[in-house]
Design a protein around this nucleic acid. Structure first.
Length: 596
RNA sequence: GCACCCUUAGCUCAAUUGGAUAGAGCAACGGCCUUCUAAGCCGUAGGUUAUGGGUUCGAUCCCCGUAGGGUGUACCA
């Protein structure tokens, strides 16, 4: 039992003993004492004044006396206004540190057979263009949330729904054929997703040119947009696809294959992965059948033109289309089908969709529809919605060429890491292969930290020129601290100092205790981050921890003029800090290099 | 029009979910490499938390109003 919950329980007991009041112990408010005051843990006593019918100071003093007498490890207290500052014995902190030191998975909970199963859907790309900055935020958040849930003792299945079917991919296919149909990733040397994306752009150009030409020939804009030959051709292609035309299907499979090869590379570089991938082409028919079932059961209704709708006015929402008049499915339809398949495939306790906040309405509707269709998990689906990434000049627009490509971005980051590192010259003497591995870790650490430290629900700004720095509150700063600690540990080892076997007792002081307190709060931070689905909490904690370590590092020498017992203790403190940094970074999907 | 979200230092972001004097980094200025990695450390300056009310011992946080910004409300995905 940690001292925080012990104090809470005893405060509740004190209230009963002193003022004959029943007060639930989990409502007792405690917090780490602010640094400017003496003490380690602070109990907020304002709420108790009405029970004691005395001033806050006097109430605090009475409770303080009670605690000092009852609880081991509390040595004294002081009172400031309604704040009862409790001083905890240094031995307690030493014990806490030792426990953390022994446990390599400190802060993580064990996953057992009986653990809840959470499925996290993220990424969800279209197959007509490469991944961009917006996808990066999605992928990093999704992966991190999965890590955080695991750390909180959940079984996790990471999943991806690939939108592999529809008019968008047909546009790329059409443009590819129109171009002669000869280019491949092999002949061009282009990554498959980029090649297909280029054709999507080419289609758009072709389309615009044709529309302009038709308008010039006297056609109205609306007509021109419908009658442009390339658009007609694309629609035909989509119809053939639906009709299982072998030629179209084979082209579709070929070009999607290129895209998947490209995606695989990007995912791998980002360090994200999936346990199970679903394809829209395999789920949309399931969804359509579900909607038809709902129609038969009277949950939905059909309009005269044959389209199927759900009326959700009693839920405070509008009407929503589920099947077009020609019987084909819409976005919502396939999401219903995908959900059904997923719950057949796995025993899911909790379903989490990592999807941008522009789809809040969509998921409100989906939740209600699944519920209506009789799936009891429909109500509980969680839409983890995040804000968009904006550029200095506004939103990303593919047509204006302001999209930040994921591959380009990662390449650029690695380049900066390489340049910075070479200028500092710290890796001289290592092989090129080792160096490249370190550059990659630093670059990805910078990118991931930059994105994950921001509250997910907020719109964030990304400035390609200056956003990702390597100084200050950044990923590399945290990694740098980790690397420095490793360096100290290596040195200690070479001096023959053992710190996994402390022989003499030491009594930590000042910054040492502050650092231990920070370390020990990691578990609570992990728990908190899973409640709010916020990797940002972990990122900000990691930064705080590193700052705290630097304070300690600034005040004390580890290997310098200290006696052996002190050195051992401080080494233990440093190693534990590094361990916690590593565990925190792991939750963000960031790897720590041993040196940099 | 309606619904949801956002607004904190010049800029990018925090603030342990209602607690003590609102904190970091960048940018600016001034110091520190003969000492465990200077991707670092120390210091100066920078704020009516958009705004007006309310709730209470106490509000950046909760409630109501106003202003500004964003998103959604498609037989697009």
């Amino acid at each position: 039992m940690n001292i925080d919950s012990m104090i809470k329980a005893e405060v509740a007991a004190a209230l009963k003993g002193l003022y004959q009041t029943e007060f639930s112990e989990d409502k007792v408010q405690t917090q780490l004492t602010r640094k400017e005051f003496e003490g380690d843990l602070t109990v907020v006593v304002f709420p108790f004044a009405r029970f004691s019918k005395k001033g806050p100071e006097q109430t605090a003093a009475e409770i303080g006396d009670y605690l000092v007498e009852k609880v081991d490890n509390i040595v004294r207290y002081n009172v400031l206004k309604g704040f009862l500052n409790i001083v905890i014995a240094p031995e307690y902190w030493v014990k806490t540190l030792n426990a953390a030191f022994e446990n390599k998975a400190f802060g993580y909970q064990e996953v057992t057979e009986n653990s809840k199963l959470a499925m996290v859907e993220y990424s969800s790309p279209n197959t007509n263009k490469p991944l961009h900055l917006g996808h990066i935020r999605n992928n990093l958040l999704g992966y991190s949330v999965a890590q955080i849930l695991k750390a909180n003792g959940c079984k996790v299945v990471k999943t991806n729904i690939v939108n592999d079917r529809g008019i968008h991919i047909c546009k790329s296919m059409y443009a590819w054929q129109a171009d002669g149909g000869t280019e491949t990733p092999e002949t061009t040397g282009k990554k498959g997703d980029h090649l297909v994306g280029d054709y999507y752009v080419r289609f758009d150009k072709m389309y615009k040119a044709q529309v302009a030409e038709l308008i010039e020939g006297g056609m109205s804009k609306e007509d021109a947009e419908q009658k442009a030959p390339c658009m007609i051709g694309t629609r035909e292609m989509l119809l053939k696809w639906e009709a299982n035309d072998p030629e179209v299907r084979s082209l579709w499979a070929k070009m999607n294959g290129w895209v998947y090869d490209g995606f695989d590379i990007t995912y791998k570089r980002l360090g994200v992965d999936f346990d199970k991938i679903y394809y829209e082409s395999e789920t949309y028919l399931v969804g359509r059948d579900e909607v038809l079932r709902g129609l038969e059961e009277g949950l939905f209704y059909k309009r005269e033109d044959g389209s199927v709708w759900a009326n959700m006015k009693q839920d405070g929402l509008d009407e929503k289309i589920l099947l077009r008049s020609d019987g084909t499915s819409v976005y919502m339809t396939q999401d219903i089908g995908t959900a059904k398949l997923r719950f057949e495939d796995y025993k899911i306790d909790q379903m989490i969709y990592v999807v941008g906040n522009e789809q809040i309405y969509h998921f409100q509707v989906l939740s209600i529809l699944l519920d209506k269709l009789g799936y009891n998990w429909g109500k509980d689906l969680y839409h983890f919605s995040y804000g968009m990434v904006e550029l200095p000049h506004g939103k990303m627009k593919s047509r204006e060429g302001t999209v930040v490509d994921a591959d380009d971005l990662v390449d650029g980051m690695i380049e900066v890491a390489r340049k910075t590192s070479e200028e500092l010259g710290k890796l001289d003497g290592y092989s090129d292969k080792e160096k490249e591995e370190i550059y990659r870790k630093i670059a990805l650490g910078a990118l991931k930290y930059f994105i994950l430290k921001v509250d997910p629900k907020k719109t964030m700004l990304f400035n390609p020129e200056e956003s990702i720095d390597f100084n200050g509150n950044t990923g590399p700063f945290i990694l740098y601290t980790y690397a420095r600690i490793q360096s100290v540990l290596r040195k200690a080892k070479s001096q023959g100092i053992q710190w996994n076997d402390i022989s003499q007792a030491v009594s930590p002081i000042g910054k040492e205790i502050e650092l231990i307190k920070k370390i020990s709060s990691f578990s609570e931070v992990v728990a908190e981050s899973s409640k709010t689905y916020s990797p940002a909490i972990i990122a900000n904690y990691a930064y705080d921890l590193v700052k705290e370590f630097n304070q300690f590092y600034h005040d004390f020498t580890i290997l310098g003029e200290a006696n052996l017992a002190q050195k051992q203790f401080r080494l233990r403190l440093a190693e534990t800090t590094a361990q916690v940094i590593n565990n925190a970074m792991n939750l963000l999907g960031i790897e720590c290099p041993e040196r940099m």
